[in-house]
């Protein structure tokens, strides 16, 4: 895995093994903030940023813990890093765009419990990527998350105008839509490498 080409890492993370639709990571924000395209776009950007920061820090921490032979602390350290990165983004957004801060609401602090980000840190460790590969992997995963979120938001904006049976309103219909999207993404299987 060490010699995997950068473009294949990117495609693999973004499309073939899309974090949301193929690996089921980050479903909560995927269902929660995909009602409007604009919010979805901003949420996606925030997630990409947190992913990049935590990927870099996770790489550094993993190196340090391996040196010190303290690998059992890895999970605790990763989650602490992610929580701090999210705090950073929250302060940044609050300072520069209060309206965005309000529209993201509770989902901004909840990025901490977005398993896509912890998953990313764990996968990049398991795959033994070097620093550059980790960064590309993080970007790919973030772009994939943004893509899935935007597709879903687009569909749901259209759906808001459609007449659906009252029994299928809300989460049930969103899940069915997500299933169809996931089915479509399965068509990409086999282009990239193995499953994360």
């Amino acid at each position: 895995m060490q010699t995997e080409a950068l473009h294949s890492i990117f495609l693999n993370a973004a499309i073939v093994n899309n974090f949301v639709l193929a690996l089921f990571l980050g479903i909560c924000p995927f269902l929660g903030v995909s009602a409007k395209k604009e919010t979805a776009w901003n949420m996606g950007l925030a997630v990409i940023f947190v992913m990049l920061v935590s990927s870099m820090s996770a790489y550094a921490i993993n190196w340090l813990l391996t040196e010190l032979d303290l690998l059992f602390l890895r999970l605790i350290c990763y989650i602490a890093i992610i929580a701090s990165a999210v705090q950073l983004v929250e302060m940044f957004v609050k300072r520069f765009s209060p309206s965005l801060f309000r529209s993201l609401g509770i989902f901004l602090p909840l990025i901490t419990t977005n398993c896509a980000i912890l998953g990313l840190a764990l996968f990049q460790t398991a795959k033994e990527y070097n620093f550059i590969q980790s960064l590309v992997y993080a970007t790919g995963a973030g772009v994939g998350f943004l893509l899935a979120l935007m597709l879903m938001a687009g569909l749901r904006e259209k759906l808001a105008l459609a007449r659906v049976p009252s029994v299928s309103q809300g989460a049930a219909l969103s899940l069915m839509l997500a299933g169809l999207l996931s089915l479509a993404f399965m068509g990409f299987a086999g282009i990239g490498g193995s499953i994360g």
Partner: peptide
């Protein structure tokens, strides 16, 4: 496969809604 997970959970929610 992944899509099945979405479909089955969606179906359960439909049933509960009903």
């Amino acid at each position: 496969l992944p899509p099945g997970g979405f479909f089955v959970l969606g179906a359960w929610l439909l049933l509960f809604n009903w």
